[in-house]
Design a protein around this nucleic acid. Sequence first.
DNA 1: ATCGGAAATGGAAACGTTTCCAGCGCTTCC
DNA 2: GGAAGCGCTGGAAACGTTTCCATTTCCGAT
Lengths: 355, 355
Amino acid sequence: MDAFPVTYGVPVDDLTASRAPSKVTLVDIARLAGVGVGTASRALSNAKNVAPATRARVLRVAEEHNYVVSPEASRLAKGNTGRVALVVPHLSRWFFGSVVEGLDSVLREAELDVLLYQVGDARDRRDFFDRLPARRKVDAVVVVGFQVEDDERTRMETMGVHIVAAGGQSAAYPSVHIDDYEASRQAVDHLLHLGHTRIGMLEAVDPDQPNLSATRSPAYYDALERAGIPADPTLVVTAPWGGEHGAASMGRLLGHAEPPTAVFAHSDEVALGAIRTLRRAGLRPGDDVSVVGIDDHPMAELTDLTTVRQRPVEQGVIAGRLVLDLLGGGVAPQASTTLPTELVVRGSTAPPLRR
Amino acid sequence: MDAFPVTYGVPVDDLTASRAPSKVTLVDIARLAGVGVGTASRALSNAKNVAPATRARVLRVAEEHNYVVSPEASRLAKGNTGRVALVVPHLSRWFFGSVVEGLDSVLREAELDVLLYQVGDARDRRDFFDRLPARRKVDAVVVVGFQVEDDERTRMETMGVHIVAAGGQSAAYPSVHIDDYEASRQAVDHLLHLGHTRIGMLEAVDPDQPNLSATRSPAYYDALERAGIPADPTLVVTAPWGGEHGAASMGRLLGHAEPPTAVFAHSDEVALGAIRTLRRAGLRPGDDVSVVGIDDHPMAELTDLTTVRQRPVEQGVIAGRLVLDLLGGGVAPQASTTLPTELVVRGSTAPPLRR
DNA sequence: ATCGGAAATGGAAACGTTTCCAGCGCTTCC
DNA sequence: GGAAGCGCTGGAAACGTTTCCATTTCCGAT
């Protein structure tokens, strides 16, 4: 990204120059159909109190002249935007793309438009909450995979903009997420059940998602403790999120005086990085060192990676429904939905070798 | 996805119920600042012909009262939408997510809003071009990774909506893409230079992207012919896109009476599926059978996959600039940009074993 | 026949901007 | 000293809907 500066020469104002030629308006349609504009509007918007014959005539005329309502005018008169903002840190990552996929399908079905906002870093994010919402461009905001600060949330609320979280928990607004602690426990318990006692962890931190690792490593420590195994902090390596960093971290573990026989990785991508390091070191994943991740990334299946499955598309779908609930105005939607995770055992984990 | 029906109980009309409480309008600001609405508008929109003192006063009052313009009203008066539609087949795939990432960064910088439309299959796509959605909601449409039919394009144009293609070529509208033929040639030539003479191909078809494989397999045949190697159609296996299908196709090749010593896969995901099959068959990728893909998916690096790199984020960025050009109205933008691809040699390819 | 009420209709007001146009006070130049 | 010009300003018109309200029409019931 950094290689491609995004500044561009055209002044913003000039962008307003182009214009659509389609000039047929509701008034035209009404005149052509021989009805008043009120009736024409009602006919087109499926309102009641329009005679079937009249409606048919209006619709036919509209069709013939390729009439389409002006969303601007319609929204202005109606007083709402019909739009929802999706705020996503990294679109190119499988997890986020999948959540958005789920969200999009539900929101489109409800005839809502989806406005996309990618907020890579904290600055982008500040920007978003400062500018857009304040601009009354949307009725609701869905944040994917991160938390909204209290002051940001307050501002949104005073503007009448709803907030929903997908792939991240919050007490302050409705959210859909997995139980990170539980997922991590499933992964570590699996290694324990296989008989491993020397278990490392590859912890990933994302400066923009500080709270994620915060629940995954405690689960690791707790699981070990419950199994009566003393935790060894030198077996926990922390690095930024991503396969490359996973690979490097695994390298550090291999350099340990007494290396682990199994490793719990923060995510599948991290785990796959670790596996590359193992292979390059001449070790067989699963046979020599067990590796388990979290996500069930499509690559996990292809690479025989044991993992804890979550379903991001489903998270998106449910978050989308929360948005509809909120916009429907009626029922107070369930504050928080926790989706189950599921251990998927593949070839990258096995009992430890006898020594 | 299919497990989660997207229909929802709230009638669309009811979604219009909620409303923003922020009721301070331009007229209020003008009154409070003691100026006319015209002047207030000019002051806020940075127009000229406003006395510095007046502008300052208006801005201060607006700030104090948390004034924000109504985009609906503004757009209605101005006559343009300030929005661009992104039409994408599969958001959760790395390639598409990355292109959108690039597009988003450029368009946001220009203060344009990005409307997302996911069109999984041909029906969705028809729908998109048929129904009003794009019609007057956007100033331009960017299609990612597929072609627009001629009649669809014509309709868009008569509505004054610009079209740009990212990750797919077209003669009819501006586009950014790689040279698929050349990329395929690079991959196959690499295998030939290593000394392979028995080279298979895993061809992927996507019902929604029919034209992709159309250029990759001809390149394969041509490269072999140029090397004086008779093509063997039984070494070309065609299947839907995806790792699972790649794995199955590789299985078929292994069952061949005289299996290939190297395989050119349509994409990295397909290649990784093939590699899983090789591993399960006890074969070492690179040593026993060479595999090369196309994309340089992040996983390629982690799995030591030789591949032909393309840069989807860059494609998105350039496509975004094309949109700005078009909207700027001035210069006719360059019709078509072909980005270079680059062979990246890793561990999955090596000279054939001596027999 | 007449009446009451529901259904259908036309028109106007409202939504909140931007932009055009005319006016007004100053300077500046004959 | 007057006319021309310029910078700034206020107000009105326009943008294209939706919705409210008053009116008309239609129908069955009395």
